[in-house]
Simulated scan of single mutants.
Amino acid sequence: MVYTVLAFAVAGLVVVQAAAIAFAVFGLSAWIEQGGTLDAAAMQNEVTFPGVVGFMIHGMFGSMVIPAVALLLLISSFFARTAGAVRWGLIVFVTTAVQVALGIFAHGVPQLGILHGILALVLFGAAVMAGLQGRRKGAAVTTSVGVETAAAPVAHA
């Protein structure tokens, strides 16, 4: 259950990321259209405009919150009694790590922003797949000695 909740939490946090960056960019655009000027001096003086908090949310969630939840997902995958949990936990974790790296390096190489946006969709899909994998009824389970057996169906309310 913890594995499933964490997987869907990653997916939900990716949605928050998309909403936050859209809020920030549209807020910045509206501010510029109303006469605001964005340059290095403005950036150093902490420009305020509707949506500026979106940049902060995107940065904080992307660099700290999602990686922490992805790590917890990976750790919990070793205890989940669902076939494929470790594989999907690892996919989500590695995708998150690459996503963070792209977000950092895209400041110097803006073209990486394209991959950052695409990989966000991949991360969302992987997290949803991990969550669905955790909810599977009667999924095969790998025992401590590496033998795969059928698990008893899990009753869901």
Rank of each mutant, 00 (worst) to 15 (best):
L74Y: 09
A30R: 12
G27P: 02
G138A: 12
F61T: 15
T143C: 10
A41Q: 14
T37S: 12
R135M: 13
R136D: 00
T95Q: 07
A7R: 00
A80C: 10
A7C: 04
V16H: 02
I32T: 13
L6N: 04
A70V: 08
A11H: 01
V47R: 09
V86Q: 09
L121C: 11
W88I: 01
S76C: 08
A150N: 11
I21F: 06
L73D: 07
G117E: 05
A157Q: 14
R81V: 00
P67N: 06
L90G: 12
L71S: 09
S63L: 14
F79V: 07
A11T: 03
S63G: 14
A101C: 05
P67I: 05
M1R: 10
L112I: 10
S29E: 13
F23D: 07
E46W: 10
M43I: 14
G125S: 14
A120N: 10
P153Y: 05
M64A: 13
V2S: 13
A30P: 04
S144G: 15
A139W: 02
A7D: 00
T96L: 05
I66R: 04
A11V: 01
A152R: 11
A152C: 07
L112W: 12
A41W: 05
L119I: 10
G103H: 05
T142N: 04
G59L: 09
A150P: 05
V10E: 00
V147K: 13
V2A: 13
V145P: 00
V5M: 01
E33R: 12
A42Y: 09
G113K: 07
F61N: 14
V147Y: 02
Q17V: 00
T82R: 15
I114Q: 07
L73G: 03
T4V: 06
S29G: 10
M56Y: 14
G84F: 04
G134M: 01
A106K: 15
V109S: 08
L38G: 07
R81M: 03
L71C: 11
G54C: 03
V47D: 05
V16K: 00
S144F: 06
H58Q: 11
V47L: 15
A120P: 03
L102I: 07
L72R: 04
L74N: 01
I114F: 13
I75D: 02
L102Q: 08
G51H: 01
A11S: 04
P50K: 11
